[in-house]
Design a protein around this nucleic acid. Structure first.
Lengths: 121, 121
DNA sequence: GAGCTAATTGAAAAACATTTTCGATTAGCG
DNA sequence: CGCTAATCGAAAATGTTTTTCAATTAGCTC
């Protein structure tokens, strides 16, 4: 983070701390965990972190959500209760990416699975 | 559409027509194709169509996009020029969904691939 | 540790996106 | 043709994100 000439301010540390507490939080949830940081700064810090690749921005249907990008994982979203859970195991067949005949250099992907969680069935 | 007691108004037909012209359009693009329909009605019609399962709502990083949900497909997004292309062939291994040990009933999924398109390399 | 400077912050305002309200209009029925 | 619930549109309200700009501060230098 300092490499790029960015300062390690208490506000940025607070936002990172909030992100570390739970994955895929909305901006309001993050803000709730660091009330001492101004709203504008939360917005700015999140877009900086996304730009630096430290944080991933999601959109699972309801507005934006953010999570630390440390590990590769995917989401299962329950259409009934809205619960979001994660799984590591990537069910993609690497042989089939990029798709045949596509002139495309794959760098990353995101996969979301929708359905019903155990509790809702 | 009529089954549920909904009326087939010219405005709704116009929005559907706009959606048929191109996939994954933003609301502004859709609106540009049916200027005779009020903005509020475009919003309302799109959320109705999404609710009915006729239209899919996407978020590929820039705001909301909409497309007819007739066929199952995925998106490749060029991180350089922003171009969005589609592919049908699903590279998911059905054996691995839901992931092991997950108590989850899978109903659908969405997959987006990010990278660089042929033109940008 | 004090001083300097560019980066950062926060409050207010601006810009943009979406939803609500409510009176006027209309599709689809008999 | 007439009726009525559904729909529409314009304005206002609400919600979200960005910009502006003066004040503050992290991190460097000495």
């Amino acid at each position: 983070m300092r490499g790029g000439g960015y300062k390690a301010t208490p506000q940025r540390m607070a936002v990172l701390g909030a992100l570390a507490e739970e994955q895929h939080q909305s901006l309001e949830e993050i803000r709730g965990r660091c009330l001492e940081v101004g709203l504008v700064t939360v917005y700015r810090t999140l877009s900086l972190l996304v730009e630096l690749g430290i944080v991933r921005r999601l959109d699972l249907g309801d507005g934006a959500r953010y999570e630390l990008a440390e590990d590769h994982h995917h989401h299962m979203i329950c259409e009934s209760c809205g619960d979001i859970s994660e799984f590591e195991e990537c069910p993609l067949d690497p042989e089939r990416l990029p798709p045949e005949n596509a002139d495309f250099e794959v760098r990353s992907h995101s996969l979301e699975v929708y359905g019903r969680c155990g509790a809702c069935r």
